[in-house]
Design a protein around this nucleic acid. Structure first.
Length: 274
DNA sequence: AGGACGACCAGGACGC
DNA sequence: TGCGTCCTGGTCGTCC
């Protein structure tokens, strides 16, 4: 379930290891994960090139090489991106990068085959170009933030829309709305300025705290070294249906929005009239 | 055009 | 026990 904190944790682990390394070989075991490219093109654009940066935009992990090509990796829901000894094989390895003068390989391991790799020329190319506000970018300011509320959609669905704001997934959206005491079903336009401001402040705050705890491991998330995150211990209501609300003791409810679970405290997150 | 919904994938948890 | 059904996650294509 990598959301922004999990992706950032992976990037934090990979960057010091891979920056400056030259790609020696790319092994594509599952072509279906390549979206707008082919193994041949990947080889042509990346092999022999030095990695200049490992970074993150939204939930995409970006490997930039000298000369400008960018491999944009998205893990979707179950994927891992692991640094492994070159002779180690995992059950669901799909794509591996090997490097010159380096005894490890970078492996996309993805049970459900939902991960993707795009090859881009610039960070403005799709699928990055249409991403919304990133909570850690320079564009993340109050003026820009207010603009995303211009819709009748439920606030939870809006915050999950990566074209509006990018990085949040189901877990952190639930947590952030709870901390801001906003009903997830409230029409976005009806969220008061005061609550918008709370959200504006809380989104980077909650994500930062999660990054400091190396992300959330509920099922199979692992960082690039195979380590679990710790933020699951700090979740206030995600996955806690029927348990008491940590603020008021009311039983936490679970409802469905857009086909997936929303957790809420019906007391703390009553529909706002403020 | 915005928004709702199903598809994608695979395995685990559940009910009968 | 074994089978069927539902659920999970993020995004995209398709439809209205």
């Amino acid at each position: 379930m990598p959301e922004l904190p999990e992706v950032q944790t992976i990037v934090n682990g990979l960057k010091p290891e891979l920056q400056g390394k030259s790609i020696k070989q790319i092994e594509v075991l599952d072509v279906d994960l390549l979206r707008n490219t082919t193994p041949q093109e990947l080889n042509k654009k990346l092999v022999g090139k030095q990695i200049t940066d490992v970074s993150r935009t939204g939930k995409y992990i970006l490997l930039e090489v000298a000369g400008g090509s960018i491999a944009a990796i998205h893990l979707r829901m179950s994927g891992k991106l692991l640094l492994l000894e070159t002779d180690v094989n995992t059950n669901y390895q799909r794509i591996s990068f090997y490097f010159k003068d380096y005894e490890k390989k970078l492996t996309m391991d993805n049970l459900r085959r939902l991960g993707t790799l795009d090859l881009l020329k610039t960070k403005r190319d799709e699928p990055l170009g249409s991403l919304g506000l990133d909570p850690f970018s320079n564009e993340y300011n109050w003026e820009n933030f207010q603009r995303i509320f211009d819709t009748s959609r439920a606030i939870k669905l809006l915050l999950l829309d990566q074209k509006k704001i990018t990085g949040l997934g189901n877990i952190y959206v639930n947590e952030v709305l709870f901390k801001a005491q906003i009903s997830p079903t409230s029409p976005s336009q009806k969220v008061s300025k005061q609550k918008q401001k709370k959200l504006f402040r809380l989104i980077p705050e909650v994500l930062t705290e999660a990054i400091e705890n190396n992300g959330t491991t509920l099922n199979d998330y692992r960082d690039s070294l195979g380590e679990e995150g710790n933020f699951q211990d700090s979740l206030l209501l995600y996955g806690k249906e029927g348990k008491p609300c940590p603020y008021c003791g009311t039983k936490i409810m679970r409802i469905k929005q857009g086909g997936r679970s929303t957790y809420l405290c019906p007391n703390c997150q009553a529909n706002d009239n403020d």
